[in-house]
C-alpha cells in the first residue's frame, strides 16, 4: 500500500475535505491504484534534469504601476453566501 486510510484522512483534512466512513475504503484503494501507476516514473533516471514548471518561455510580464478601476463593493459582495454590510460574514473563529 502506498497510502493508508489514516493518511487519506490526514490529507483530506489538509485539503479541508471529509469523507463518510463507508467511502474511505474504496477511495483509498483507488488512490493506491493511481499512485502505483505513477511508480513507473521511478524507472527513469532524471539526475541533473532541470524540472519544467511552465509551458512557456520564462520571462517577467511587467506593466506600468498605474491605478486602474477595480470591482466596487456591490459587485464584490454580490455572490457572497452571507454578506453583512461591507463584509463577508463567517462563523465565529475565536471563542
Amino acid at each position: 500500500m502506498k497510502i493508508t486510510q489514516e493518511e487519506v484522512r490526514h490529507v483530506a483534512h489538509l485539503a479541508r475535505l471529509e469523507f463518510p466512513e463507508d467511502q474511505i475504503g474504496k477511495f483509498t484503494i483507488q488512490l493506491n491504484d493511481i499512485l502505483m501507476y505513477m511508480e513507473m516514473l521511478n524507472a527513469l533516471d532524471t539526475k541533473g534534469v532541470e524540472p519544467m514548471t511552465h509551458a512557456t518561455v520564462l520571462y517577467n510580464a511587467f506593466r506600468d504601476d498605474e491605478v486602474k478601476p477595480s470591482l466596487g463593493e456591490g459587485e464584490s459582495l454580490a455572490n457572497a453566501p452571507d454578506p453583512r454590510g461591507q463584509f463577508f460574514r463567517v462563523p465565529r473563529v475565536i471563542e
Binding site: 483530506a12 483507488q30 499512485l35 532524471t46 519544467m52
Partner: peptide, 27 residues
C-alpha cells in the same frame, strides 16, 4: 479525488518523489 492526489503529491516528504520527479520527466 484529484484534490487529494494533488495535496498528497505536494505534501512534505512526497514532493520530491512525485511533483519534482514529474516536472523533470515533463522536461
Amino acid at each position: 479525488r484529484r484534490i487529494i492526489i494533488g495535496t498528497y503529491v505536494l505534501s512534505s516528504g512526497y514532493y520530491e518523489a512525485y511533483y519534482k520527479k514529474a516536472s523533470q520527466v515533463r522536461a
